[in-house]
Design a protein around this nucleic acid. Structure first.
Lengths: 201, 201
DNA sequence: TTCCACACTGCGGATGACCACAATTGCTGC
DNA sequence: GCAGCAATTGTGGTCATCCGCAGTGTGGAA
């Protein structure tokens, strides 16, 4: 259903092939690109899995490619490979959010383990992001006034108080409140609060 | 009120003094130790600020010291300094949660900037941890039955339904519910949900 | 102009939440 | 045994919520 997938960006065909083969034996599919430019041209916001990125490549380097991905809002974990890395480079990459930073020659199993952790991490991210997308689409259905009322409801205020603050009648607040519950698919203010505040219990 | 504080662990007195002086000019206080052992012996769970940790020291290394801190549940950001670090060492430290990893010779201003970011980050952590501690102490005051009822209340169920599920009368549920609100310092189920689900809006 | 979404309001009733008053049972510790 | 806490239940009343029914007004789209 959700195939594990690694995006391999390296200008060395031997590395690409070796990695692809290695990952296949561990049940992870691969897509390969021979340059950062090529990968970036193909990249879409809905890409999932992880990125294995060689640092030293002709033209655009892996680090530059990473920066572009960050600008574009990429969410996939990025694993760097390098033969000539130094400490500041590794530190900088990790602090920017890279998933890992491995030096060549690397242990095959170690790399595959890292890739698997990365794709699994991405799968978890996708799952939580999906729930969030549902929320956003529901919130988008609310009228401005409904959103306003919803926020006040979420503070635990009585309808009477909300009515006073908005200078409208209690009945109107009730109507908005009811519509909010209906559109958000909940049956009480508590459920709404839980929905808008995930990760609990 | 909350003095910015750096814990400097380095067996080179010249470095300790230089760092202390540098930080003082930027309004950050320092405490210094000449070995990891000495620092660990003094360490208390309520230490705050940040740790500046040299990696190569006689006896216990900075990395070993870091591991001990992690076991003990240290929360302070740890900044590593090293003259002979390598990439795997830096990557390992950062993935374990180190705040930064700097190579000597380092730029004075850069280090001070990092330290300041670290102590500020710790101050934020302390603030949120404090709120969480308040929560925990309040939750600790609840009886088992009250906690049980609270969880059901937080699902948005009616008192009647909760009563059925626990095989008790509605009146009893009301009493527990009321005590929960009282002990948790809230006035409605929505406020309770907000309290137990921070970081929203 | 007609239709429609949105905001607004009132009335009255059913249901749920909350509370003061009052009380019983069981267990723990002095 | 008695004090104290936790859990339990009932009565009766007040306040809040929820909802159907009914209606007004406004601004934008067809």
């Amino acid at each position: 259903m959700n195939p594990l997938l690694a995006h391999i960006v390296d200008d060395d065909e031997a590395i690409r092939d070796a990695l692809t083969w290695l990952l296949r034996t561990r049940n992870v599919a691969s897509r390969t690109w021979s340059s950062a430019e090529e990968f970036l041209a193909a990249w879409q916001p809905d890409f999932h899995g992880c990125v294995v990125l060689d640092i030293r490549m002709r033209e655009m380097s892996g680090l530059e490619c990473f920066d572009v991905l960050l600008e574009r809002g990429n969410n996939m974990p990025v694993i760097f490979l390098t033969g000539h890395g130094d400490v500041p480079m590794a530190v900088g990459a990790l602090k920017k959010g890279a998933f890992d930073f491995l030096e060549k020659p690397f242990d095959d199993n170690a790399l595959v383990d890292v890739v698997i952790r990365a794709v699994e991490s991405d799968a978890r991210r996708m799952a939580s992001q999906e729930a969030q997308a549902t929320m956003s689409s529901r919130l988008a259905q609310l009228t401005p006034r409904e959103i306003e009322v919803m926020h006040l409801v979420l503070t635990g205020k009585f309808n009477k108080v909300i009515a006073d603050e908005l200078n409208i009648s209690m009945r109107t607040v009730e109507v908005h409140r009811s519509r909010v519950f209906e559109k958000m698919g909940v049956r009480s203010a508590v459920e709404l609060a839980q929905l808008l505040a995930p990760g609990r219990d």
